[in-house]
């Protein structure tokens, strides 16, 4: 008993004050990229050719954040002259096209569906489906349940059955072997069946795009309401997106 109390005393309260107070991530973190459209054409071409994800559009000088895994190759190659990754973690969007960015991404709150806010603003129950992928997306979603983020204080929970859920949060490039299980889980949801695609794999296939063993992304299997990019998305990215999209 005394040990429990002493540890409790030592640990104190570690829950963040977000969103009432902002959070600044370490500058090492690679979040929303800033693009310099004035940089030389050769540099853009160099970055585009060497991008492991083929996420850079040479003509438009833009990056597809749905494909991007934020590896930093383009920043290194252009020495920051074409792309620099900022520590801005606010990356969630409502439409896939919004992730094709050259100047930034639209404010999520302005685009979120108002009836969702009305329905789920006070209580949102999600079922997570892991469909391929590498488990880092799942790991960083689990982190949201730890005392620092404490997701349940916003009325948002991950539940054990699709029957108890308002929607599913899908991670992974949807491996062929998980396709049926994913669709069955979706079927078991009550309407209006929210679908959230979390991580580069769910949005575009991520590092596994083109493999014959994956179906590449869920967008052409299910109607997606919210896209959360990253490899994996930082827990703050996911938290920000969930709060902005669903909370009043």
């Amino acid at each position: 008993m005394i040990k429990t109390l002493l540890n409790r005393w030592e640990q104190g309260c570690k829950t963040s004050k977000y969103p009432r107070q902002g959070i600044t991530l370490a500058t090492e973190y690679r979040g929303l990229p800033k693009i310099d459209r004035q940089c030389s054409k050769d540099l853009v071409n160099l970055c585009a050719e060497n991008c492991p994800q083929d996420a850079i559009n040479k003509e438009k000088r833009s990056i597809d954040l749905g494909k991007c895994v934020f590896c930093g190759t383009c920043e290194k190659l252009s020495e920051g002259k074409f792309v620099t990754f900022t520590n801005n973690f606010e990356l969630g969007v409502e439409k896939r096209d919004f992730l094709n960015t050259d100047i930034g991404i639209p404010n999520l709150a302005e685009h979120s569906k108002q009836h969702f806010k009305k329905l789920f603003g006070r209580s949102l129950q999600l079922r997570q489906v892991s469909a391929g992928g590498c488990n880092s997306c799942e790991a960083d979603l689990n982190v949201l349940a730890t005392p620092f983020f404490d997701l349940s204080r916003f009325g948002i929970n991950f539940v054990a059955s699709p029957r108890h859920a308002d929607g599913i949060m899908v991670t992974g490039p949807v491996s062929k072997n998980m396709k049926t299980a994913l669709l069955k889980t979706y079927e078991a949801l009550p309407a209006p069946k929210i679908v959230i695609a979390s991580g580069a794999c769910a949005i575009s296939g991520g590092p596994f795009y083109g493999s014959p063993e994956v179906t590449d992304w869920i967008d052409h299997l299910l109607p997606v309401d919210l896209f959360i990019p990253g490899c994996p998305p930082h827990p703050m990215t996911a938290l920000h997106a969930l709060l902005k999209f669903f909370k009043k």
Binding site: G132, S175, N177, A181, F208, S211, P212, V214
Partner: peptide
């Protein structure tokens, strides 16, 4: 279920 064809890729 998580098979993505890594080795072949």
């Amino acid at each position: 279920f998580q098979h993505r064809g890594v080795e072949k890729m």
